[in-house]
Amino acid sequence: MTTTAEPRVARRRPVRRTGAAVVRPGFVWAVPATLFFLIFAVLPLILVAVLSFASWDGISAPRFAGLDNWRTLIHDHVMIQSLWLSVLITVLGVVVQTPLSILLGVWAAGHQRNRAVLSAIYFVPLLLSATAVSILWRALLDPNFGVPAQAKWLFGDGNLFGRQTSAIGVLVFVGAWQYTPFHTLIYQGAARAIPQVLYQAAEIDGAGRVRQFWHITLPQLRNTMITSMILMVVGGLTTFDTVLILTQGGPGTDTTISAYYMYQRAFKSFDFGGGSAIALVLVLIATVISLIVVKVSGYDKMRGTTEGL
């Protein structure tokens, strides 16, 4: 495998400082992982597009169905509603989690001892599976045995899962509880990487803490904000476990967001073609939103944040 790489390298750099040609691994080294990834991630992604034009009940062989699934989908009001719900939950998630995680992350970036201890506790939720988190909150918010049953003055009849607004509120809250620590962690890392020189210069100029935050910290975190928001958007649009365990899409179909609807269509109603079509819509929306975020922010030009230092 080296023989393919060696002569090329030798040709490109005939004289080396050390005199010995550096051996380079051939692409063969990348083949096992690439093949594995192609089979178990890329192939299914292609198949999802193919299956969206097929009718398949999960048992007999899939057969070509043209645009049938798509036609059904366009006229399916649950589907249309699920898209709006997905977008709503995603937007609410970004709006709630971004300011929280920036503030917590910047705070935790300080090197004080108490912050280290506190952040060790903050990060506990990201060790838990989405399943465990959802089950924990389902139990805590149980209409009969949970906290709302004891605090009726705050929660009304105590059944948070019985109305659309409160059910969506629960989903957004539990999502924030689970994922804010993760985004906090990203911001903490990024905030630590901001050169101290900038703050020292600002302090000499007499800028206070608030102005330093707005004029140094936030602009320096720009790239991290984009990464974190893209992760939130993709994660929000594909929210599934939380809905399955907390609300089962209810009351009625009031919290049936697209990823959950896809699971229902495919694995509960055995309409795997229809499920694939929904999945493809989700992938396309997530990709388009990520691309828009990248374009609008100029992230693709990779403007460094250390310019002028």
Binding site: A41, P44, L51, T238, L282
Partner: peptide, 19 residues
């Protein structure tokens, strides 16, 4: 692999079941 970062597992469960 960079593009692969953006593939959500949720989106491929149907074809994964097939494969």
């Amino acid at each position: 692999f960079l593009l692969g970062l953006a593939i959500p597992a949720q989106a491929v469960i149907v074809p994964m079941f097939y494969v």
